[in-house]
Amino acid sequence: MPEATVAEVMAELAALEEPKVRAVNERHGDDHGVKLGPLRALAKRLKTQQDLACRLWGTGDSAARLLALLICRPKAFGRDELDTMLREARTPKVHDWLVNHVVRKSPHAEELRLAWSADPDPVVASAGWALTAERVAKKPEGLDLAELLDTIEAEMKDAPDRLQWAMNTCLARIGIDHAEHRSRALGIGERLEVLKDYPTPPGCTSPYAPVWITEMVRRQEEAPAGS
């Protein structure tokens, strides 16, 4: 399907729709019924098509938007385009994929991280905190980690769910990746008890920061040198 039309792609997405998948997704706030495996397979067939990606995004359909994020050119979007797209992306999966598959690869990522982190809309702010958590782990130079911990300590407990999750991820990354701040990160997690009772499947690590930090540090210490 090298040069598919929007109508052709939408018809294929409709054929992939499964009511049971939609029901499960809707319990998590998403509104599509296409399994991600077939969606990725379709993206692989389509390959990168920026114009088609923009038209698919414009449909407003969540499955089409997820596909668009897989076939677009992340660096082709302007800063204001990405800001508009984030504010349109209200469902969790579309929001997460936009941040992780597109914004992270954009030359505008740092500017948007700073702007979004301070946004009064908690869903927008959660994107800024997600980008901050990645910087904490991969490119912490220039970040004031102590100041980030101050903000997390003051605001995370009462933050709306998605913002709270992103701030908690940032707290955990500070504790995991920066030994000099680990004790304080653990202490904040223990005092605030955010996600302490989050249901965690067997074999998975709890998102409760003290457990998450402790487990990941243990794995790092046990990993063979150079692995």
Rank of each mutant, 00 (worst) to 15 (best):
residue 117 S to F: 07
residue 186 L to D: 06
residue 20 K to H: 14
residue 36 L to M: 10
residue 57 W to D: 03
residue 100 N to V: 08
residue 40 R to Q: 11
residue 196 K to T: 04
residue 166 A to F: 05
residue 21 V to A: 09
residue 46 L to Y: 04
residue 20 K to A: 15
residue 101 H to R: 13
residue 136 V to E: 08
residue 32 H to W: 09
residue 54 C to H: 10
residue 53 A to N: 05
residue 80 D to P: 01
residue 6 V to F: 10
residue 224 P to G: 07
residue 102 V to A: 02
residue 211 V to D: 08
residue 159 A to Q: 05
residue 198 Y to W: 14
residue 30 D to K: 01
residue 57 W to T: 02
residue 14 A to V: 04
residue 226 G to R: 08
residue 144 D to A: 08
residue 87 R to A: 11
residue 134 E to V: 05
residue 163 L to Y: 04
residue 192 L to R: 13
residue 45 R to Q: 14
residue 164 Q to C: 14
residue 130 A to Y: 09
residue 116 W to Y: 05
residue 162 R to N: 12
residue 163 L to K: 00
residue 211 V to M: 03
residue 173 R to P: 06
residue 55 R to T: 09
residue 224 P to K: 07
residue 4 A to G: 12
residue 129 W to G: 10
residue 32 H to G: 01
residue 46 L to D: 02
residue 98 L to I: 04
residue 227 S to A: 13
residue 118 A to S: 15
residue 88 E to A: 15
residue 56 L to C: 05
residue 84 T to N: 08
residue 14 A to R: 15
residue 33 G to P: 00
residue 199 P to E: 06
residue 40 R to H: 11
residue 42 L to D: 03
residue 26 E to D: 12
residue 133 A to K: 01
residue 5 T to M: 11
residue 207 P to N: 08
residue 32 H to Q: 08
residue 125 A to E: 01
residue 209 A to W: 00
residue 105 K to Y: 08
residue 169 T to G: 05
residue 158 D to I: 01
residue 65 R to I: 10
residue 212 W to K: 03
residue 25 N to P: 13
residue 190 E to P: 11
residue 173 R to D: 13
residue 180 E to C: 10
residue 192 L to V: 11
residue 56 L to V: 01
residue 56 L to R: 02
residue 189 G to K: 02
residue 162 R to C: 06
residue 102 V to D: 00
residue 135 R to W: 11
residue 135 R to D: 15
residue 16 L to D: 06
residue 46 L to H: 05
residue 140 P to E: 14
residue 20 K to M: 10
residue 186 L to Q: 09
residue 160 P to C: 10
residue 69 L to R: 01
residue 50 Q to E: 13
residue 42 L to P: 01
residue 160 P to S: 11
residue 190 E to V: 14
residue 104 R to P: 01
residue 160 P to N: 12
residue 55 R to D: 13
residue 96 D to A: 14
residue 102 V to C: 05
residue 8 E to S: 15
residue 122 P to C: 02
residue 122 P to E: 07
residue 222 E to A: 14
residue 14 A to W: 04
residue 146 A to D: 12
residue 42 L to N: 03
residue 139 K to L: 12
residue 225 A to W: 02
residue 41 A to G: 14
residue 98 L to C: 07
residue 179 A to E: 13
residue 46 L to G: 03
residue 203 G to S: 03
residue 138 K to C: 09
residue 115 A to V: 04
residue 109 A to Y: 06
residue 225 A to M: 08
residue 40 R to K: 14
residue 93 K to E: 10
residue 219 R to L: 07
residue 64 A to I: 04
residue 185 A to K: 02
residue 206 S to Q: 10
residue 41 A to P: 12
residue 220 Q to M: 07
residue 95 H to F: 09
residue 190 E to L: 13
residue 50 Q to P: 09
residue 177 D to M: 03
residue 7 A to E: 12
residue 22 R to D: 01
residue 184 R to I: 10
residue 55 R to K: 15
residue 207 P to R: 04
residue 152 I to H: 00
residue 53 A to L: 06
residue 153 E to V: 05
residue 101 H to P: 00
residue 68 A to G: 09
residue 218 R to P: 02
residue 194 V to Y: 03
residue 99 V to W: 00
residue 206 S to M: 11
residue 111 E to C: 03
residue 2 P to N: 08
residue 139 K to D: 13
residue 11 A to S: 06
residue 177 D to H: 09
residue 112 L to Q: 03
residue 71 I to W: 02
residue 114 L to D: 10
residue 158 D to R: 04
residue 129 W to C: 14
residue 184 R to G: 10
residue 99 V to Y: 01
residue 45 R to G: 12
residue 11 A to R: 04
residue 155 E to K: 11
residue 87 R to L: 10
residue 225 A to D: 06
residue 105 K to E: 11
